[in-house]
């Protein structure tokens, strides 16, 4: 039809001559002590992108909600259940999956890594992952104790998520929150931000702005 707006794959209309919109980044935190850096991570991304945030119930022990950027909505499991009242209502994990161009889980805990590798989906975060379109970029930045990082399960799980097409931002070696020294600390928020942004911009150059 002449004059009609092009429709994107997810059913979202876009004006013909619209300026390219900001990338939409879904940032998520699972229950690792490194979630104390989550507000900082959100600030890093919010200058450049439209950001929405997701947290597991365990991560809320560590996230300083007052320090979160004012324009970033933080979704929890409570929102998943309270947003649905009757058949026909939108489902939050599906809406967020449709909305996002890129997903980043930082920190990714050993438990959530295990759930993703096994296809389990018992909270908002893992339901988004279970419904994810793997043609869209997906990054994880694990954070766990060195003993957990070196445990044989970790390698198995990393192989599983690599096969899905999830990109790993590896942890670093340093003094951990528990006092142990070794590998397993989450990469710095600035490193996570620059990794994702470089990836996005290189893809955008290759494909005229579309990922």
């Amino acid at each position: 039809m002449a004059g009609s707006e092009p429709v994107r794959a997810e059913g979202e209309t876009m004006a013909v001559d619209a300026a390219p919109r900001k990338p939409r980044i879904l940032l998520a935190a699972s229950g690792s002590v490194a979630a104390v850096k989550f507000a900082n991570l959100c600030h890093c991304f919010s200058e450049w992108a439209d950001v929405r945030a997701v947290s597991t119930s365990a991560s809320l022990h560590f996230i300083d909600r007052a320090a979160m950027p004012k324009d970033v909505i933080l979704y929890t499991d409570d929102n998943e259940w309270s947003s649905w009242k009757k058949l026909g209502d939108s489902v939050l994990h599906i809406e967020l999956r449709k909305w996002a161009d890129i997903m980043v889980i930082a920190p990714l805990s050993a438990n959530t890594l295990g759930k993703i590798a096994g296809g389990l989906c018992d909270n908002l975060l893992t339901c988004i992952v279970r419904a994810w379109d793997y043609s869209k970029p997906f990054f994880v930045a694990p954070a766990m104790n060195t003993f957990m990082w070196n445990n044989p399960f970790t390698e198995r799980h990393l192989i599983s998520i690599d096969e899905l097409g999830i990109s790993l931002i590896p942890p670093v070696t340093k003094r951990l929150a528990c006092g142990d020294y070794g590998n397993g600390a989450m990469a710095e928020p600035s490193t996570i931000y620059s990794t994702v942004r470089l990836f996005y911009e290189s893809k955008a150059q290759q494909g005229n702005g579309d990922i």
Binding site: A58, A110, N111, L113, G114, K115, A117, G118, L120, N145, F147, M148, N151, F153, T154, R156, H157
Partner: peptide, 15 residues
């Protein structure tokens, strides 16, 4: 499955 959402399974996950 390598899950660790309580004290016992977290010890096993770090074993």
């Amino acid at each position: 499955g390598g899950l660790c959402d309580d004290l016992l399974t977290t010890i096993v996950r770090a074993w």
